[in-house]
Structures are given as structure tokens and as C-alpha cells.
Design a protein around this nucleic acid. Structure first.
Length: 600
DNA sequence: GTAGGGTTAG
């Protein structure tokens, strides 16, 4: 209980006001203390004091206390025997800001902006950045445009803070919103570091990382200095592209320009190195950090998971817990996927169980998804199926696709067929559902049915996402698709591919033609395999990089069985370490072996 | 009392 003794002989109201403000400054970190202070405020009759109202709102840092503060400000009508308090813009701004900073209640920002107008309070220049930040989390373009209209109506369309948040908000509203972000950006009368950062981050969020990098270069040409926040987004873009050389350049740029290495920047560096194939460097940076957050730990754990270093990931997770860091739901996704990629079925079961038992974290659908994947890859397809039927959620599309992939791999083709058909019914515009069904028919050698699936896709105007491989050579990113002839060097590349084929065959490579899901003869199948984008990229790398150096490539889909086998031989015959990032994980090929131990 | 950033199952 808070002990309050009021000194004698002081003007009572003034003194009480100060006491409450002091209390709010020092005792506001939990809901129960806030409740006690509230009781005290009611006792003193100061519940309408504007200073106290604002302080009470601004000190409510977690969601429960914000809700509590709200119910204090806007009590249910039957309890309002006291006169209506005097609300001002400052008070509303405080409340709107509090909600804009929450994870799941951002929409209340807009709600209280409306309440503000209803109470006849005019928004000021601080109001809109908060409201717009809230709107960014709601995801409605219509609402966003409506608030944009309000910005204009109240005459804040030239305020640089407002403009920057406007760009940010539109960037959070998907492709449709993005057009408006670009328009605001292009028309901006004042552009500062934040304006550019917001737009660069927007490109990354939309998955247009190379355009984000282009914009960063443009920013430099325009003479605007990037800061640590800009660099975080640029590093995200590098991570997404798998552009290690560019990422390293960013790291040295940060050093050279003395850009402060915030925790977030270090986390972004860790993530970049892990996603660009150098997880050891990520660990090194992590160990050098003075202070780490849960995100730092999770980034390394997820990085190790991606590289198939499950045991390292698990021991880092344990080390984190031993260090008194409470894992959150994201950290569990990291450790569970680590178990999954390394076949650590029992460990995965243990961590899943410990979520609620030891940390009171209720597993979300993603965690169940990890478990399904873990069981499927571990060969327990039947158990995975039972697990899905018992789980407290409706399984989502991702979970069904995991099971179908497992059915394909383990030969449970009839089961895979029936689930795929159901999936197509429920989600007819998702092309990968058709691809899965078509692959199953290919494995069953039912060419007619397979053709029908493809026809169905054509009829609905859908196309299979083409496989593509990216490679960074001399700080440039090159992209290859199957059968690509757009490159200047294409003749040499195809000659190299032929040579590679001859050399690895001598070493014992046998093409895995069953993977080619077309009804064509074996020789043509072999030809189709040689045109795969990853083989073209590797040939390109062999031609354009010094002997003995490692080759890093990034594939947009999962690496196919034949390319996996061929790459093992190439690594041996040409004495190259080849690091392949596919859609799900990394493969480190060295001396004829792969780090995934053919388990992926 | 204002804006932009880091980890997330296949």
C-alpha cells in the first residue's frame, strides 16, 4: 500500500495535486499501483484536474493501464455524478499516443481522435503524427485517406513531421497504399533524413528491396545524411536480397561515418549476416554487444536454425533463459524451427510443452505449424495429422501445405491428393496449391490429371512462380531464371553448364530426372534440369570468380533434389564452397557434402 | 508532448 501523509499548514488542494503528480512519477509501473493512485485521486476529488488527468494517461505504459486510464477519463455514464472534466488537446494527444504505441490496440488512436473532435477539441500539430501512427496499424486505406483529408483540413499538410508519418502510414497499407506514399514523397516540399528513411523502409516492407537500395543511393546523391535508423532499413534490404558484399559495405560505412551502433542497428547487422550466409559473423557480433535485447538473441537463434545448426540454436536458447531473459513467442518460433530443420524431434516436443508450462505463453498457430513441420520432417506424418486434428485452431493453409509436402515426400500420395483438392476448393486463387497437386500427379505418373490441373490454373489466370536465382558478383546482383538467355555471357554460361554436367557425371553424379514433372523423354528431362536457374548461376559464378573462392547464391523457391545433388558434386569437382539460400533455409556445400545432411 | 528502424512456422 502507498503510504501518504500530508504535511500540515499547506494549501490543501495544491499540496494534494503535487503529491499525486509525484506519486504518478514514481509509482506508476504496475496496474495495481495505478489503481491505488486512482482511488486516492477520487478521494481527494481531484479527478477533473487537467494536470493530473494528463499525467495519469501519459504514465500508463502497458495496455492494461492505458485501458484503465481510459475508463478513468471516460467513465461509464451511470457512474458520472461528477461534472465533465475539462479536456484539452494535450490530454487527447497523450491518450492517442499511448494507443499508437501499443501492439494490438492501435485502432483506439483513431477512436479517440474522433472523440476529440466530438468534444469540440481542435487537434494541434502534435495530434496527427500520433493518429497516423495508429492508422498505420489498422490497415484500412479508406481510413488512412480520411485522416489524410483531416490533415489537409486542419492545415498541417506542410508539417514535415506529419508528412513523414503520412508516408509511413501509406507504406503500411499494402500495394494500394504505397502509391499514395510515393505521391506524398514526390510532392514533399521538405525532405529530411526521416522522409527518406520512411520511404526506404516502405520499399523493404513491400518486398522491393532492390528499389530500397536504389533509393538509398539516390538519397546520398541528394546529399541527405542517413542516420542509424536509415541504415537499419538498408541492412534489412541486404538481408532480404542476400547481398553480403553490400551488407559488409553498409557495416564499414557505419564505422566510417561514426553512425551510432544502437541495439537495433546491431540486431539488423546480425540478421543481415545470418541471412547472407555468414552466421559465424552474426554470432561474433552478438557476443561483442554490450547490451542485448530478446530480439538480438532471437535473431541469432533464428539464424542458426536457418543454417541447420539446431544444437547450437538450442544451447543458445538455453543460455538465454539461464541469463534471465524470458523468451517470447517469437523466440519460441526460432527454437522450434531450429529443432525442425535439424531433426531434433524430442527437443522440439520439449520446448513446445515448456511454453505454457514454464513461461505461460499460449502457443499460437505458428507454433503448432512448427510442430507439424517438425513431426513431418521427422517422418511422423501420421502423428502430425493427428496433432492437426487435435489442435485448438482451424489449421491454416500453411499447415495443410506442410502436410501435403510431407505426403509427397513419403509417398502418401492419395492422402496428399485429397488434401490438395480440398485446399484448392477453399483457396482457389493460391497457385502453390495447384503446384502441389500437380506434383503429386506427376509422381503418380498420371499425366492427364496433371495436365488438367495446369489447364485449371491457366483458366483462372494463374501462373507458377518461376524459379529464380540471384548471385552477387563484384557488388552487382545478377538474376537467373530457368533457360535464361538474357545475360551477355549466356553462350559461355551454357557451355560451362555442359562442361559441369560432363565433369560431375565422371565423378558419379546421376541426374534425378523423376523430379522433372513433365511427360517427356529422359534425355529431354536431363536437358530441362541443366537449364535450372541455380545451375546457370553457379556456372556464371565459376566463370566470373577466382578459383577456390566460395560461391553464394539465393533461390526464391526450395532447391530441387537434382540441383541439390549436382551442387554437392560441383563443390567437390571444382573445389568450391557453395552456399545456397533457398526459400526456407541454407545449404552449405563443401567437398561433396551438404550441411543439411540431405535433410530438408 | 511530434515522425522513420531490429527477431516471426512453409
Amino acid at each position: 500500500m502507498i503510504n501518504l501523509k500530508l504535511p500540515i499548514n499547506t494549501p490543501k488542494t495544491r499540496l494534494t495535486e503535487q503529491t499525486i503528480l509525484t506519486l504518478l512519477n514514481s509509482h506508476c509501473n504496475t496496474l495495481s499501483k495505478l489503481t491505488q493512485i486512482h482511488a486516492f485521486i477520487l478521494k481527494t476529488g481531484l479527478q477533473n484536474n487537467p494536470l493530473i488527468l494528463t499525467k495519469f494517461t501519459s504514465t500508463s505504459s502497458n495496455l492494461n493501464s492505458i485501458h484503465y486510464a481510459t475508463s478513468f477519463l471516460f467513465p461509464p455514464s451511470h457512474t458520472t455524478s461528477t461534472p465533465t472534466p475539462s479536456y484539452d488537446a494535450f490530454l487527447f494527444n497523450t491518450l492517442i499516443r499511448a494507443y499508437s504505441q501499443t501492439r494490438d490496440s492501435k485502432s483506439n488512436s483513431f477512436l479517440f481522435y474522433r472523440t476529440m473532435l466530438r468534444y469540440g477539441v481542435t487537434p494541434n500539430k502534435f495530434t496527427f503524427p500520433f493518429v497516423l501512427k495508429g492508422c498505420a496499424g489498422i490497415g484500412s486505406l479508406r481510413l488512412g485517406k480520411c485522416v489524410h483529408g483531416c490533415v489537409v483540413k486542419f492545415g498541417f499538410e506542410e508539417d514535415v513531421h506529419v508528412l513523414n508519418t503520412l508516408i509511413h502510414m501509406y507504406c503500411c497499407l499494402g500495394e494500394d497504399g504505397f502509391e499514395f506514399a510515393e505521391k506524398v514523397f514526390d510532392d514533399s516540399p521538405k525532405m529530411d533524413t526521416v522522409t527518406w528513411s520512411a520511404m526506404i523502409a516502405g520499399f523493404v516492407r513491400l518486398g522491393c528491396s532492390s528499389r530500397a537500395v536504389d533509393l538509398f543511393r539516390e538519397m546520398q546523391v541528394m546529399g541527405v545524411c542517413p542516420d542509424e535508423i536509415t541504415m537499419v532499413s538498408v541492412l534489412s534490404a541486404c538481408a532480404d536480397l542476400g547481398a553480403l558484399e553490400l551488407g559488409k559495405w553498409v557495416e564499414s560505412y557505419v564505422e566510417k561515418k561514426n553512425i551510432p551502433k544502437s541495439v537495433e542497428l546491431c540486431n539488423a547487422l546480425i540478421d543481415m549476416f545470418a541471412k547472407c550466409g555468414n552466421v559465424d559473423k552474426a554470432i561474433k557480433l552478438f557476443r561483442q554487444m554490450d547490451s542485448r535485447t530478446i530480439v538480438s538473441w532471437t535473431s541469432v537463434i533464428a539464424g542458426l536454425a536457418m543454417h541447420g545448426r539446431g544444437l547450437d540454436a538450442v544451447s543458445l536458447f538455453d543460455e538465454m533463459v539461464e541469463n534471465g531473459i524470458t523468451p517470447d513467442d517469437v523466440a519460441f518460433i526460432g527454437v522450434l524451427s531450429a529443432c525442425s530443420h535439424s531433426g531434433l524431434v524430442d527437443k522440439g516436443r520439449y520446448y513446445f510443452g515448456s511454453m505454457e508450462r514454464n513461461f505461460s505463453i499460449v502457443p499460437k498457430v505458428e507454433h503448432y505449424g512448427c510442430m507439424v513441420d517438425l513431426l513431418c520432417r521427422g517422418g511422423f506424418v501420421k502423428e502430425a495429422f493427428e496433432f492437426v486434428q487435435k489442435m485448438p485452431f482451424e489449421p491454416n493453409q500453411i499447415i495443410w501445405r506442410t502436410i501435403i509436402t510431407a505426403c509427397h515426400a513419403t509417398g502418401e500420395l492419395k492422402l496428399g491428393e485429397s488434401i490438395s483438392k480440398e485446399l484448392i476448393k477453399s483457396e482457389p486463387m493460391h497457385e502453390s496449391n495447384y503446384v502441389l497437386l500437380s506434383n503429386i500427379y506427376a509422381k503418380l505418373r498420371q499425366w492427364e490429371k496433371k495436365t488438367k490441373v495446369r489447364e485449371m490454373m491457366d483458366m483462372r489466370g494463374m501462373k507458377k512462380v518461376p524459379g529464380s536465382t540471384m548471385i552477387e558478383v563484384n557488388n552487382e546482383m545478377y538474376e537467373f531464371v530457368a533457360g535464361d538467355k538474357s545475360h551477355d555471357q549466356y553462350k559461355e554460361i551454357y557451355e560451362m553448364v555442359d562442361e559441369m554436367g560432363r565433369e560431375i557425371k565422371k565423378a558419379g553424379y546421376v541426374p534425378t530426372t523423376s523430379q522433372v514433372l513433365l511427360d517427356i523423354d529422359e534425355e529431354d528431362k536431363e536437358d530441362a534440369l541443366y537449364r535450372h536457374s541455380e545451375k546457370l548461376a553457379i556456372a556464371f559464378a565459376l566463370l566470373n570468380t577466382p578459383p577456390g573462392t566460395s560461391i553464394r547464391i539465393v533461390k526464391n523457391l526450395r532447391v530441387c533434389e537434382d540441383c541439390h545433388s549436382a551442387t554437392k558434386f560441383i563443390s567437390k569437382v571444382y573445389n568450391r564452397e557453395i552456399v545456397v539460400r533457398d526459400r526456407n533455409r541454407f545449404h552449405h556445400f563443401k567437398n561433396g557434402l551438404c550441411s543439411c545432411r540431405d535433410f530438408w
